[in-house]
Structure formats: C-alpha cells, structure tokens
C-alpha cells in the first residue's frame, strides 16, 4: 500500500448530452503529494473531481482511490476521502460549530473525539473565536475556510479541493494556500484544482494541465516549462489595430507563435534580447508604434499558450 499511488485515474470519460466534458483523462497521484489540475473554466476539472468522489458515474474508464475502485467500491472510496466542493456547501442557518459538529457526525465521529476534533479544526481554519456565529453572516473568505474545515474533520488520507480560492480576498487566499501545504506536511494527499497558474506553480509537486476535457500535459513545474524549450513570452500593445504587423511578426526569426486578444498581443520567443529589436523594426516599417512591452520568463501560462494557442486567463 505504501508505495502504491493514492489516486490512479484510468481513461475517464463523461458527456452531458452531446457535450464531452471529460474525454479520456488519466493521471496518477502519489501518496503525500499535492497534485493540481490546472485549466480554464469548462476544462472538465469539476466533472473529473465529481467522478473521483462518486457523485457522477463515468461513461467509460475507472479510477482507484487508496486502492478502492470508484465503480465497485464506492463506500471504500468515500471513507478514504475528504471533499472540498467548488461551491460552498454549508448550512447557512447553522453556526460554524454546528456545521462542523453535523459534518463530523456524518463522517462517523462521535462524543469527545468529535468535540476535540471540531476544536482543532476551528483552530486550523482560524475561526475559534467566531464559531458561534451563523455561517450565513460570514464573509466569503470565512465561508471558504469553513468549507475546507469540514473536509478535514475525519483526517482523511486523500483530500480533493475544487477551486478553493475562487472569489476571495488575498488574505484568506494566503491562509488557504498555507493550510494546503500544512496538510501535505501532515502526510495527506491533496488533489487540487485551479485556474490560477501561480497557485499550482507555488504549491504543487505535480501538475496536469487540462483543456477541453483532456489532460494536454503533465509533470512537475520544471518538466512542463521545458516543454516550451524555456521560451519567454512578450506581451505588447500597438497604437493601431494592425493585422498585417501581427502577420509579419509570425514570420520573424526567433518567434515561435503570436496571438492577439483584443489590443493585447502575446509572442512566444526563444530569446527576447534578440527578437525584440526585430519586432520594433517591423512595427516601424508598417508605421505602427509599440506602446507597451512586457517580458515574462517561461511559466505555466506560456506553456498553456504554447499548447493551445489561447491564454489561460478568462
């Protein structure tokens, strides 16, 4: 058991009507690591997590969570798991403590063990002093923290977190990222989904990039960046909307690809020192002016751009 993977995903498929939300996803999460699924909205992250938590039936494929098949041993999967859903799933008319007490019981905790653990979790999520307030009165960030706290109650071996930092203040976000790292340090396995590449870059041991229901690349951060050969990304704006300039840039030596979204132009280049003067030169020839330039060293954003031709951000 010790060296076997915490989660093994084998060729999962799932459609909603004609919409192929997940089409052949496979990956493996080692015990004790943080694994992120990184992808834009609609990539199929939540659908994948739902199948892995036995909420959705896969059309095809299987997965094992701590050795339990999501097809044939759902109770085994569920008892190994803590799930932090993307949407806050709490009883707003109950207090934080009442929520934790209830969910603790649902996870099979009772009596003094329950009470002790609820106090511990309140401590972890930093809400001990406000535990008697109804969750409905909490700020978004506080709700998110309780939402996570619930999944920690029974000290599961594996925890899924589906976009736990969406729409909250930077401070709560920091708190959450720190607690994810703390969970890993306690030996938990974390499957984390996000569309923020900085987050997965910061916390993950392994990353799978998802798009249109498929894993388009996976590996460590370094491995992924190597995919684009260490290319840098240059972001520019022009004073005119010059299609012909962009068309010419695509042919410039050292330029791998150019994409334009509204007035913002992104170019993946091998060496920005060599390429930038050529771009200025070309703009001048078409009597256009470059009004801003930004150089980004290789990161997951550029990996995504390289693989899909689109930006990761909405």
């Amino acid at each position: 058991m010790n060296n076997s993977p915490a989660i093994e995903v084998l060729n999962l498929h799932r459609s909603f009507g004609g919409n192929k939300a997940v089409q052949g996803v496979s990956f493996e999460v080692k015990q004790g690591e943080i694994f992120s699924l990184l992808g834009p909205n609609g990539a199929g992250k939540t659908t994948t997590i739902s199948m892995l938590s036995c909420l959705l039936r896969p059309d095809e494929g299987d997965a094992r969570v701590m050795g339990h098949s999501i097809r044939s041993d759902q109770m085994g999967v569920k008892s190994a798991l803590g799930v932090v859903p993307q949407e806050i799933a709490l009883y707003e008319d109950l207090t934080a403590r009442e929520n934790l007490n209830f969910w603790g019981k649902m996870y099979g905790l009772r009596g003094s063990a329950l009470k002790i653990r609820v106090d511990e979790v309140l401590e972890i999520i930093g809400l001990s002093d406000r535990a008697r307030e109804r969750v409905g009165k909490y700020s978004g960030g506080m709700k998110r923290r309780v939402n996570i706290g619930v999944a920690l109650l029974h000290k599961p071996k594996v925890i899924y977190m589906d976009e736990p930092t969406v729409g909250i203040d930077p401070q709560s976000r920091r708190n959450i990222l720190d607690s994810v790292i703390a969970l890993k340090n306690q030996g938990m396995t974390v499957l984390y989904t996000t569309h923020y590449m900085e987050e997965s870059q910061e916390i993950s041991d392994h990353i799978a990039i998802m798009d249109h229901g498929k894993v388009i690349a996976s590996g460590t951060h370094e491995e992924l960046v190597k995919l684009i050969g260490g290319q840098a990304r240059i972001e520019l704006t022009l004073n005119t909307n010059a299609e012909n300039v962009i068309a010419e840039w695509k042919t410039v030596e050292g330029v791998d690809s150019v994409t334009a979204e509204e007035e913002k132009i992104s170019a993946l280049v091998n060496d920005s020192n060599l390429v930038l003067p050529r771009l200025f030169e070309s703009a001048t020839r078409h009597s256009a002016r470059i009004t801003s330039v930004e150089i980004r060293e290789p990161n997951l954003e550029s990996v995504f751009l390289h693989l899909t031709g689109r930006a990761l951000r909405d």
Binding site: S53, C54, L55, M75, K78, S79, L81, V83, P85, E87, I88, A89, L90, Y91, E92, W103, M106, Y107, G108, V150
Partner: peptide, 16 residues
C-alpha cells in the same frame, strides 16, 4: 435548500 446549496451533494460524498 440542501440541494441548491450543494450540501446534499456533499452529504453524498460522505459514507452516509
């Protein structure tokens, strides 16, 4: 409300 707030789904991820 339980279904709308997704707490029902969450209940279904526990072994209840």
């Amino acid at each position: 409300v339980e279904r709308k707030s997704r707490t029902l789904q969450r209940l279904l991820t526990t072994s209840v």
